[in-house]
Amino acid sequence: MSEAAATPALSLEGVWQAFASADGAEVLALRDLSLAVAPGEFVSLVGPSGCGKSTALRLVTGLIEPTRGCAAILGRPVEANLDRVGMVFQKPTLLHWLSIEDNVLLPVRVRRGRVGEADRTRARALLESTGLGQFASKLPHELSGGMQQRAGICRALIQDPDILLMDEPFGALDALTREQMCFELLRIWGERRKTIVFVTHSIPEAVLLSDRVVVMSARPGRIESIVPVPLPRPRTLESMALPDFQACTQAIRRIIYGYDTERAVVGAAL
């Protein structure tokens, strides 16, 4: 397979992660996690709360070191390739004293100490492409939640990273905005072909967006199964009506709940 031959965009190999809990006992957050994500691939991590989805993501940002095993970005240790990674948080996490444009430019300011006119042009183009063009000079609180999160995505994209890590980025948004943001993200991904690792609680969201869905289970966090999504691209609202979409979401639910949900519903009706 060509995927296996090329260097994966990011990989976790035999990662174990243990934390000391508040009372001093050791808690195993991840057990023997191995995952390789190919360049340009869109992979989602789903699973119940506490299954270590966010922990896995934080390993790739270098915020935490694996207890055992290793994490790599483009075949090199995480620390060496950090500037190839952009991160989108659950909350927009915009600095409320900076304009939207300056928020987007924050990674540039940190990396190079100053912001040039070329950077500003790039930031404005990014904002323009996500429909925030006329809000560049506004302060974050003047924007809606969805617009703030779009600005957060622009900030992650400003350094043109190869990999975009998204930690439940639409979790704080209302259902309608959330759906719009999914298609917005698919459009951005279609244009720029980043490798995306997307953590979510929503199974339909994971299926709609991803090439593969990694299903995790909790205590300790481990990969239960990896479900490929055969839906054709580009994906649209109609994709959700396809039989394959239903089949995928059902398959994932079955893995998470450990039994056939259809039968469970029928059973309840009887």
Partner: peptide
Amino acid sequence: PREAVELSRVLRT
């Protein structure tokens, strides 16, 4: 805010 601290760490300030 905790998120701002996290952001700062991710950006390696």
